[in-house]
Amino acid sequence: MMIGRIQAPPTVRKGEPFEIKVLVQHPMETGFRRGMNGQSIPMNVVNKLTCTLAGREVFSADLGSGVAANPYLAFFAVATQAGEIVVEWSDDRGETGRLTAAFTLA
């Protein structure tokens, strides 16, 4: 399981936007580089990241080779019911990562 960090307010107001920040540990290998032996290093990037709020998808991103290593994403969401924020991602090698954060409605 890959390492990541998530930051979201523990309490949000119903119907008001709030910010979710996600940091993912990943080399984001472009596929354009060559190693010390001259062989090309295969591309391996986080290609998909999604965020659901109480089961409803609120954000998704298709990332590519133009994104730097250890991508940092920040986005806004609006909650209508309390629940869990779930962020999931996968890379070209099929490895996955998952982060969760619970929040309550004020």
């Binding site: 390492i3 960090r5 940092y72």
Partner: peptide, 15 residues
């Protein structure tokens, strides 16, 4: 403290 990418290694180190 959140955006500092070095904290990813700290998180892994804690595990």
């Amino acid at each position: 403290e959140f955006a500092n990418p070095g904290m990813l290694w700290v998180t892994r180190g804690e595990r």
